[in-house]
């Protein structure tokens, strides 16, 4: 389902819990699917004893991927024109993440209505883990 420009206004928000109690198994699934086998994400021995982190942690791209799920649920499939983020804090096993989109602008570009969204994903402590923006094509 795509969004209609006529039913949308600046300040509207959409949010979803995109993962509860993130499991190490999901992180391993992401490594396998994405091809990023950095041991920082799956190898607790390496990560704690050689790299000096308290535990393995999620790929930034896994958090961006889960944030993207919230976006496509909101704007519809095949509607995104842009999606970009900064990774501001690491995501750890056990984290629960909430992704939120806020309408910043509704504009027209070559006869096509476009929505610009602010995108932010926070963990269970309210710490921002991903921060960025997205744009999507709207119905009239």
């Amino acid at each position: 389902m795509a969004l209609s420009a006529s039913k949308l206004k600046v300040g509207d928000t959409h949010e979803e819990v995109v993962v509860e109690d993130l499991s190490r198994t999901q992180i391993v699934m992401y490594a396998g699917a994405s091809g990023d086998y950095n041991p920082l994400h799956s190898d607790e021995v390496y990560t704690t004893q050689a790299a000096g982190y308290p535990s393995v942690f999620a790929h930034g791209m896994l958090t961006m991927g889960m944030t993207g799920k919230m976006l496509t649920n909101y704007v519809g499939d095949g509607r995104l024109t842009k999606f970009g983020v900064r990774f501001t804090n690491q995501v750890w096993p056990g984290d629960t993440l909430t992704a939120k989109a806020t309408v910043e602008d509704i504009r027209e570009e070559g006869g096509q209505k476009i929505v610009d969204l602010k995108v932010e994903t926070v963990n269970q402590d309210g710490k921002v883990v991903v921060s960025g923006s997205a744009s999507a094509r709207l119905d009239p």
């Binding site: 050689a50 930034g60 791209m61 095949g78 970009g84 900064r86 990774f87």
Partner: peptide
Amino acid sequence: KPKSSGGLHAEQHFEYHRP
């Protein structure tokens, strides 16, 4: 190997021209 192997992802931006 240095303890801080150090490579992390800081930003990612996509532009989509078609699905």
